[in-house]
Design a protein around this nucleic acid. Structure first.
Length: 572
DNA sequence: GCCGTTTTCGGCCCGACTGTTTTCAGTCG
């Protein structure tokens, strides 16, 4: 998928134009388009010209550049701009706090062409004396180079949300705090996170700042002011804290939650109504009278918009929907009645089926499908046909004893390297829920991997494709897949795709979830539980579903067990 | 370069913090 590449190119074009001191609004246009492409829920390569023009911030010119890149693999305008600017200036922009102005000044003075040369120049104190640079700035540039070397990859939500909640708990303990919340892309539940944003109110803001800077997790202080401080924590992740007056809490929370594009849109709308939105509140332009800001709802109300949940704030059509009052009624965890992907001790799970039932009941579920691995997956003690049938007998016996809860018998069947399935049709016909997935041969070509999944979906007994891309966030990329093809065949065959709620999977990705909804492809939100505590991960999957605009009826396992079984039989 | 329940031309979100400055430019989010 070229979306990220093109987003990066637009951002680099903006960088170069900034160095050239081009028109600031033209630069912003490229930045805005870049942001929106990065968060886009569709594969650019699959979109028509008309659809490209519907992307916020993309007009005729940028659509043409996107198409040029998709067709030729390069963008003439970008290549030309890059030739006009020395590589040295460009390379320096990677250093935090070193922007286009300073980079150009350094280049003009020293003709530096790489970060290595920049580091050497800083160590030799040759930067001092260049316009606006003294000792402190030189030191900061050196620090910045170190942080570039360490790298600052986006981190999995699965690790950053717990880290953020730990910081909030520590702050609550050490300082007087009224309201406090994790904001930013964590609150929007993006699957990867760049930094942690926290907003708080307190009767003693200075005490909160002091407590924050003194937390044991804090590794380095980047900046500190009366209302705002930035630090890095162990993992090299940046944490920003904002402390505001209670009357500003909602405005600050909205501001820090973003996305940036969403906020810019709201501020533009406010402007047209003679209002001004900042992180302190929403004000009337003429006399600066405060109209609201204590709660986020004030902002949407004053703009005559439906309240937009944080998970939707990506400037991907939610504002248009909020104007018309047509936002989705997002699915909640309470809507989910069962879990269709659960492992027991029969294969690689840690608990017996009865224990799993008990745990699922406590979570408020009324059914689970036990889907242990199939025979081909030796490492996970996959079940032979004989063992599968023994398991069926145990589940039938258990169901006779259960009241108000049902165990469905299923399998997580391996899709073999050649696209064939690990159980024959007559065995699959015995099962109530057939989940199929790939566990090996991840290095196949896009065509081969797509063909494997498609072959599985074309089997009339396969109900759900589990963790469709196989990715583990921060550890391994998913295998290559033509997701549009997969989605089309899912629609055609009536096969559901899984949102795997395991925090490091979150696979299907949100943008494909939204595409699935557009096409009418059903989604199952499953925990892939291997130990009973893992039922607790359901909310992670719900967040992905919400980011994909899903409502209750888009999700298979919001049905009762009876309705579900009826639905699943329809495929055969 | 984009965009339009005031506009197809003339606008374009808003503020904090730092370092180097005697009032602000640069950078970031």
């Amino acid at each position: 998928m070229k979306n990220r590449e093109i987003a990066r190119i637009f951002d680099e074009i903006a960088d170069i134009m900034e160095i050239r001191q081009d028109n600031i609004f033209k630069i912003r246009a490229y930045r805005r388009a870049s942001l929106n492409l990065e968060g886009l829920n569709r594969d650019l390569a699959q979109m028509t010209h008309k659809e490209l023009l519907e992307i916020p911030g993309v007009g005729a010119d940028l659509a043409a550049r996107i198409e040029e890149y998709l067709q030729t693999g390069s963008m003439a305008y970008y290549e030309q701009l890059k030739r006009e600017i020395p590589a040295g200036v460009f390379n320096m922009l990677a250093v935090p706090d070193l922007g286009p102005k300073t980079a150009k000044a350094i280049y003009d003075a020293l003709q530096i062409t790489s970060l290595e040369e920049l580091e050497k120049a800083a160590l030799d104190h040759r930067l001092i004396g260049i316009k606006g640079i003294k000792q402190k700035t030189e030191e900061n540039i050196l620090k910045g180079i170190q942080s570039v070397k360490r790298g600052r990859e986006r981190q999995p939500l699965g690790r950053m949300l717990p880290a953020a909640e730990e910081l909030v708990a520590a702050l609550r303990e050490k300082a007087p705090i009224e309201r406090i919340e994790v904001a930013g892309s964590i609150r929007r539940r993006r699957d990867t996170i760049k930094d942690i944003d926290i907003v708080a109110t307190s009767p003693d803001p200075a005490a909160v700042m002091e407590a924050f800077l003194g937390l044991t997790q804090v590794h380095d202080v980047i900046m500190r002011g009366p209302t705002r401080a930035s630090v890095t924590i162990r993992e090299g992740v940046q944490v920003d804290l904002r402390v505001v007056e209670p009357a500003s809490y909602g405005a600050a929370l909205a501001y820090l939650t973003g996305s940036q594009s969403h906020n810019v849109r709201l501020r533009e709308m406010a402007q047209k109504r003679g209002l001004k939105i900042n992180e302190y509140g929403i004000f009337r332009e003429e006399d600066n009278a405060r109209m609201g800001g204590e709660n986020e709802e004030d902002i949407y109300r004053l703009l005559e918009l439906s309240f937009v949940p944080a998970v939707l704030r990506e400037d991907q059509g939610e504002i248009e929907a909020a104007i018309k009052g047509r936002l989705p009624r997002l699915i909640t965890a309470q809507d989910v009645k069962g879990d269709l992907h659960v492992h027991s001790r029969w294969s690689d799970g840690a608990h017996g089926i009865a224990e799993l039932v008990e745990a699922a009941r406590l979570r408020g579920l009324s059914y689970i499908a036990v889907t242990d691995h199939s025979q081909g997956l030796g490492v996970a003690r996959g079940l032979t046909v004989e063992r599968l049938m023994e398991q069926q007998a145990e589940i039938r016996a258990l169901n006779r004893e259960l009241d108000g809860f049902r165990v469905l018998h299923g399998t997580e069947m391996d899709i073999r390297n050649d696209g064939s399935l690990d159980f024959p049709d007559e065995v699959l016909a015995e099962l109530e829920v057939v989940v199929a997935s790939i566990h090996s041969g991840f290095n196949g070509t896009k065509e081969a991997m797509t063909a494997r999944i498609v072959a599985a979906m074309r089997n009339p007994h396969v109900h759900i494709i589990a963790h469709p891309t196989g990715r583990i966030i921060g550890e391994r990329e998913g295998y290559q897949l033509d997701m549009e093809e997969v989605l089309q065949v899912a629609k055609e065959t009536g096969t559901a795709l899984e949102i795997n709620a395991y925090p490091l999977r979150l696979d299907l990705e949100d943008r494909y979830v939204r595409r699935a909804k557009e096409l009418g492809v059903k989604i199952a939100i499953n925990t892939d539980t291997h130990a009973k505590l893992q039922f607790e991960t359901l909310p992670w999957g719900i967040s992905v579903a919400q980011r994909g605009w899903l409502e209750r009826d888009d999700v298979l396992n919001t049905l009762s067990a009876e309705e579900l079984l009826k639905r699943l039989k329809r495929k055969k």
